[in-house]
Amino acid sequence: MTISRRTALSALVTTLLPPQALSEALSLTELPGSVAAPDFTLTDLNGIIHRLSDYRGRPLLVNFWAVWCPPCRRELAALADLREQLSDTYVAVLAINLGDKAERIAAFLQQHPAPNLPVLLDHKKSTAAAWHVRGLPVAYAIDTAGILRYGALGERDWRAPIIERQLRSLP
Rank of each mutant, 00 (worst) to 15 (best):
T2Q: 15
T2Y: 10
I3S: 13
I3C: 14
S4W: 05
S4L: 07
R5G: 15
T7A: 15
T7E: 15
L9K: 13
T15H: 15
P19H: 13
Q20I: 15
Q20L: 13
E24P: 06
A25Y: 13
P32A: 11
P32Q: 10
S34E: 14
V35A: 12
A37Y: 04
D39S: 02
D39L: 05
F40E: 05
L42I: 05
L42P: 04
I48H: 12
I48C: 14
R51Y: 05
R51C: 06
Y55E: 02
R56Y: 10
R56G: 09
G57S: 03
L61D: 01
L61Q: 01
V62W: 07
F64I: 09
F64V: 08
V67P: 07
W68G: 01
W68S: 05
W68A: 04
P71L: 02
P71N: 06
R73W: 02
R74K: 15
L76P: 11
L76M: 12
A77L: 09
A77F: 10
A77N: 12
A78E: 13
A78K: 11
L82Q: 01
R83Q: 15
R83K: 11
L86F: 09
S87K: 12
S87A: 12
D88Q: 09
Y90T: 13
V91N: 00
L94A: 06
I96H: 04
N97K: 05
N97Q: 07
D100M: 01
D100Q: 02
K101V: 15
A102W: 00
E103D: 15
E103L: 10
I105F: 03
A106G: 12
A107I: 09
Q110A: 11
H112Q: 13
H112M: 07
N116I: 13
N116C: 15
L117A: 03
P118T: 00
L121Q: 07
H123V: 11
K124N: 13
S126P: 11
T127S: 04
T127W: 04
A128K: 07
A129K: 15
A130G: 15
W131Q: 04
H132G: 13
H132Y: 12
R134K: 12
R134F: 12
G135N: 15
L136G: 03
Y140H: 08
I142F: 00
A145Q: 09
G146P: 03
I147Y: 06
R149K: 06
R149T: 04
G151D: 05
A152F: 02
A152K: 03
G154A: 06
E155S: 01
R156W: 04
R156H: 08
R156C: 08
P161S: 06
I162Y: 10
I162R: 13
E164F: 07
R165K: 11
L170R: 01
L170M: 03
L170Q: 06
